[in-house]
């Protein structure tokens, strides 16, 4: 068997065959593999894994704390915003009230002033009305007087004898007609 294998390998090339199947090296490999695995296992369980686990836990804790703090701050901000909004609404309502009050006061004053002014205007116009009527009456009387005088003068100028009463009657009749 061994010679055959050697021959086959010899024709294949460098005559190493398959080193994997060279069982004389197996104890060596298995021994060193076990040593290696034990060393790695000890490295991991004694140092590396607890350390990495602790770091990861720390980080998780830090992140959780930060998130909680952030949540708290957010709640605070929300509260502050609510208070601000409430104060703002209150101020708005107050302002509206003040404006309404002022408007009502002004309206009242205005109404009073308007009424007073109206009354004054009414009084003035009544007075003016009276005087206009007076003037008109005066003017009418003057016109009648002028007409009577003019008529008498015209009659006298024409050589007639003017009876004052008949002239007046005639003028009056004419003015009416």
């Amino acid at each position: 068997m061994a010679t055959e294998a050697t021959k086959a390998a010899g024709q294949g090339g460098e005559a190493v065959g398959m080193p994997q199947l060279d069982f004389s090296t197996w104890p060596n490999q298995i021994f060193w593999l076990l040593v290696t695995l034990v060393v790695i296992y000890l490295l991991l369980t004694r140092i590396a894994l607890p350390r990495i686990g602790a770091v990861l836990a720390d980080r998780k804790g830090a992140i959780t704390n930060d998130l909680a703090a952030a949540e708290e701050l957010k709640q605070k901000a929300l509260k502050a915003e609510k208070a601000y909004n409430e104060a703002l609404a209150q101020a708005r309502a107050d302002a509206a009230k003040i404006v309404a009050e002022a408007r009502a006061g002004i309206q009242k004053d205005l109404d009073a002033a308007l009424a007073k002014a109206d009354a004054q205007i009414a009084a003035k116009s009544a007075e003016s009305e009276g005087r206009i009527t007076e003037i008109r009456d005066g003017a009418l009387a003057a016109v009648t007087e002028v007409a009577k005088d003019t008529a008498r003068e015209i009659v006298a100028a024409l050589g007639g004898k003017a009876d004052a009463r008949s002239v007046a009657a005639a003028v009056t009749a004419r003015l009416k007609g």
């Binding site: 055959e4 294998a5 086959a8 390998a9 294949g12 065959g17 398959m18 199947l21």
Partner: peptide
């Protein structure tokens, strides 16, 4: 295949 080539 490897066994046939190198080991048998």
């Amino acid at each position: 295949a490897l066994l046939l080539m190198f080991a048998v």
